[in-house]
Write a protein that binds this DNA or RNA. Structure first.
Length: 595
RNA sequence: CGGGGUAUGGCGCAGUUUGGCAGCGCGUCCGCUUUGGGAGCGGAAGGCCCCCGGUUCAAAUCCGGGUACCCCGACCA
């Protein structure tokens, strides 16, 4: 098919849209691929919709190839299935809810684990039916707190989600691996640069999980890489246990007056001034910082949590939140401090000294029973300066294990470039990426909640084990745009481009348009997808600029070369131009596009 | 949820300080010229100046209230 620009529903913008910050958003709007309708909600115009459908096509081909079967669920879903799995409440404000005329509760599907599970339960009941892999490409709805960056994080977006159903863990492992391979083929074909990283499973629940991240500055996920090949989302980075602590005689813990030291900085300064160490100066890493937050459970229960980390680290909220799933982390407010008078702002510590000796102040053993979790770096035998639970007082030489314990450890401290990698291969490197795919082994969470069981060989009912696999289809379009654009515009990989070739008729002679017309129809007949700039009333400069903005991989300029019987073939990505005799043009271009 | 900003023709913006005919560039339409890097001249269409209320002879502009959108942040003990 030939797309003629004289009639194409397209208006490119000369200026950047004012509300677009990231390149993909800016260029997709400027080049006439998408238009904003509401925050995080976009319309797809002809060129954009072609790209989206191309991405879908690649995904379908590879999913089908790996044995997946396509189905299609509604986006409008009744409350009951989500009630059964607890997600009606667990999702909180994150879903769009609505009522029908009879006051029935509905939601716009944020993801479809429940419906897939119920459908299989509805039809299948034997081990002979498994394994099974189903997928759909669906519009999903999530009421994001802050939609941003165009189609990178929208409230309505297109997602491919698939689910595997297996009798046992070994089967699930095989299904997982199959999906992993399919994803590798998909993202390779889409021309994306990507990294597979260890991940946390988030709101879906489940165990083993990996993300496909497309490295990009505008990405919302931070991930790490080690020289030895370890890669993980920061949320999933495991802090390697430090070696055993050299046993030195640490004097008994002692409380000191440290007036006006509510921050680590002021505390360290005062310690160096008033309580100097003989061997070196105190630093922030000698202090144990105790951060208090509120955990809000899905059922609305709010409880305080204190996290102890070395004072030279900050708490990474997203890591903490990943660690306490499905609870949400909220800041500890003034009101919270008021209702928890045992917590002295700025001077919180794990031990109290009412009797002159260290006794547990935080944690399950203490009277207040405030949950207390420690950073993995705070191992037994380490020695700290920390709050003494009284204004203007800190305790020195407090030894973990000797003077206090905690209710466990938590991965909540920020990850820094240069931190040791868990695989021991050296320092971690940090980078940002866009999450384009996520695969994980769900296990039996949904099958149990919705009672999906089959009979095995022995006639026993067994709960099916599931995997869940997502690809952000519309987000992949943005990710490609983020990775492959340049100053002049978009640069599509051929597989997803709205056309293979953009013909620019440059000049005003009828001969130019006649030659361009003929080339367009010859290419079309040869099966090449053609975008043809046949506009007569537009200057050549505008056509060139538009061709670069639109980003079709091969641009053919039919114009002044005709005198010598040639056309120009320009590679959008490299900018390289070659002159090709008109007589060879079709053969040349067909070969170029099929390569 | 907190902070900052914005709201004027399809898009980008000026005008608001100091109240007085609603403007500019791009785009669109008509005519003529032009056509290898975002053309020229002439003419034209297109507006609830976010909404509600107030002050005033007079409000895009001042006052009060509201709404929407954009960006940043979300713990720093």
């Amino acid at each position: 098919m030939i797309l003629r620009m004289s009639t194409l529903f397209l208006r490119t913008l000369r200026e950047d849209p004012v509300d677009a910050e990231v390149p993909s958003h800016r260029l997709l709007v400027r080049a006439g691929y998408i238009r904003r309708v509401a925050p995080g909600i976009f319309s797809w115009l002809p060129l954009g919709y072609r790209v989206l459908r191309n991405v879908e096509r690649v995904i379908r081909e590879e999913m089908d190839r790996s044995g997946g079967q396509e189905v299609h669920f509604p986006a409008l879903i009744p409350r009951e299935p989500y009630e059964a799995t607890g997600r009606w409440t667990e999702y909180g404000d994150g879903i769009f809810r609505l009522r029908d005329r009879k006051d029935g509760d509905y939601l716009l599907g944020p993801t479809h684990e429940e419906l897939f599970t119920l459908l299989v339960k509805d039809l299948y009941s034997s081990y002979k039916d498994l394994p099974l892999s189903l997928y759909q490409i669906q519009t999903k709805y999530r009421d994001e707190a802050r939609p941003r960056a165009g189609i990178l994080r929208g409230r309505e977006f297109v997602m491919k989600d698939s689910y595997s159903f297996d009798l046992d863990d070994a089967g699930q492992q095989r299904s997982y691996e199959k999906h992993r391979q399919a994803y590798i083929r998909i993202f390779d074909r889409l021309g994306l640069d990507y990294v597979i990283v260890a991940a946390t499973s988030g709101a879906m629940g489940g165990s083993a999980s990996e993300e496909f991240l497309a490295p990009a500055e505008t990405g919302e996920d931070t991930f790490v890489r080690s020289p030895g090949g370890y890669a993980a989302n920061v949320e999933a980075v495991v802090t390697p246990a430090p070696g055993p602590v050299a046993s030195v005689d640490v004097p008994a813990a002692h409380v000191e007056d440290t007036p006006d030291t509510p921050t680590i900085e002021t505390l360290v300064a005062l310690a160096n001034d008033r309580f100097p160490r003989p061997d070196r100066r105190w630093n922030a890493g000698d202090t144990l910082k105790n951060v208090v937050v509120t955990l809000r459970q899905p059922d609305g229960t709010r409880t305080p949590l204190v996290v102890g980390i070395p004072g030279d680290r900050e708490v990474d909220l997203r890591r903490l939140e990943a660690a306490v799933q499905p609870a949400e982390v909220e800041p500890f407010t003034d009101a919270d401090f008021a209702s928890n008078p045992t917590l002295v702002r700025g001077y919180i510590g794990p031990a109290s000294f009412e009797t002159g000796e260290a006794s547990q102040y935080l944690g399950a053993e203490a009277t207040a029973k405030i949950r207390y979790l420690l950073d993995p770096r705070v191992v037994e035998g380490t020695r700290w300066i920390t709050g003494a639970n009284a204004p203007g007082r800190h305790v020195f030489d407090l030894v973990a294990g000797r003077d206090f314990t905690a209710d466990g450890t938590v991965e909540a401290a920020e990850v820094r470039a240069g931190d040791p990698a868990p695989d021991g291969s050296g320092p971690l490197e940090l980078a940002r990426g866009i999450e384009i795919g996520h695969i994980f082994q769900l296990g039996r969470k949904y099958a149990e909640a919705l009672d999906l069981k089959v009979l095995d060989e022995t006639g026993t009912l067994v709960t099916v084990t599931m995997g869940s696999y997502g690809i952000g289809v519309s987000r992949a379009v943005a990710a490609i745009a983020e990775q492959t654009h340049d100053d002049a515009g978009l640069v599509w990989p051929r597989e997803v481009a709205p056309a293979d070739v953009q013909i620019v008729a440059a000049g005003r002679d009828d001969a130019v348009f006649q030659a361009a017309d003929r080339l367009a129809s010859d290419l079309d007949e040869a099966g090449i997808r053609v975008l043809y700039d046949d506009r007569r009333n537009v200057s050549t400069g505008v056509k060139f600029a538009d061709s670069e903005l639109i980003g079709v991989p091969t641009i053919v300029i039919v114009g002044r070369g005709l005198g010598e019987g040639t056309i120009e073939v320009k590679d959008r990505r490299s900018g390289e131009r070659v002159h090709v005799p008109v007589t060879d043009a079709v053969v040349h271009l067909v070969e170029l596009c099929r390569r």
